[in-house]
């Protein structure tokens, strides 16, 4: 009895810590949502904790950005979803296969490639922006969807991440499958992937988040309305004169929703890996 009680109290304590700490982390997001519901003149009037109270809440800011003639918010949203979705889907496939090949299939030269990939992660995007533009422009992709997708499919970070986790998969598992007559691809598909759900989820989430917030690149390659992304699309709200903070917060709230949904969707794959049921360790 005593032990069960102790366990329960323990769990309650952990929950309490999570919620309290969590509030510290989510407060800006909450503030943003509250501000998006307020009339413009009240947003910065309240200071401190008072600013988290949704006074005179209404949806005017949302209506204003969703129903202006000149700005097709939903279209921009779709463009972003499509291009980032493509990056995530294709990227996860391409990068995990590459990582698997480098770690488990060790072909000639794979060691060297590994070092190159780490080196590539070091490159700050700001330093290759202009040269990359030159390359993409030479393909004739300016104002075309491939310019938003293709350069970002292969990602050093993702490959690096997959490598770390594939390394930990015991070779015994593969050897067992191999004896059953599976080829290396089948081993990948039937052994590696099911045992690595958490890392696939992490790679997908982090890749989505990174590219969802991209601004500089889409701005430069995608000026055409038909493929404009949402981060670029909402920039008209930030022009120097007469910034409407309420509308900015509403737009940012709307652009945050897909990321949160994606996160919640993928985080359910954080299940205990089969490898940990005893084979390893």
């Amino acid at each position: 009895m005593n032990r069960i009680w102790k366990k329960r109290m323990n769990k309650l304590g952990v929950s309490l810590v999570i919620v309290l700490l969590g509030l510290l982390f989510i407060s800006p997001l909450l503030w943003m949502i509250v501000a998006s519901l307020k009339p413009e003149t009240l947003i910065f009037k309240d200071m401190g904790l008072e600013s988290f109270l949704p006074k005179q809440a209404n949806f005017d800011n949302y209506l204003a950005i969703l129903f202006t003639d000149s700005v097709n918010f939903l279209k921009y949203m779709w463009n972003s979803l499509f291009s980032v979705g493509m990056i995530v889907i294709l990227g996860t496939v391409v990068n995990s296969l590459c990582a698997y090949a480098l770690v488990k299939l060790k072909f000639p030269g794979s060691g060297f490639i590994l070092v190159v990939i780490i080196a590539l992660y070091v490159v700050p995007f700001e330093s290759v922006l202009i040269p990359l533009y030159v390359v993409v422009n030479s393909f004739g992709w300016i104002n075309e969807f491939p310019s938003l997708i293709v350069p970002f499919i292969a990602e050093a970070f993702s490959i690096f991440l997959f490598i770390q986790f594939f390394k930990g998969i015991p070779n015994e598992l593969e050897e067992a499958a191999q004896i059953d007559g599976a080829n290396p691809f089948q081993v990948f598909w039937k052994i590696v992937v099911p045992n690595s759900k958490p890392v696939f989820a992490t790679a997908a989430i982090l890749s989505f988040v990174t590219h969802w917030s991209d601004f500089m690149w889409p701005l430069i390659v995608a000026t055409d309305e038909s493929i404009r992304t949402v981060q670029v699309g909402i920039q008209y709200l930030f022009t120097d004169n007469n910034i409407e903070y309420g509308q900015i917060m509403a737009a940012l709230t709307l652009t945050t929703i897909p990321v949160v949904l994606i996160f919640i969707f993928f985080q359910r794959y954080y299940v205990q890996g089969i490898t940990s049921s005893g084979v390893k360790g």
């Binding site: 533009y133 030159v134 701005l219 430069i220 670029v232 920039q235 120097d240």
Partner: peptide, 24 residues
């Protein structure tokens, strides 16, 4: 006429720079 988002700093100028780089 193409309307280019400006943002709060130099986004439009960056776009012009890229345009000059590629002669577009």
């Amino acid at each position: 006429m193409t309307f280019i988002p400006r943002g709060n700093k130099y986004a439009y100028e960056d776009k012009v720079s890229a345009g000059a780089t590629s002669n577009t």
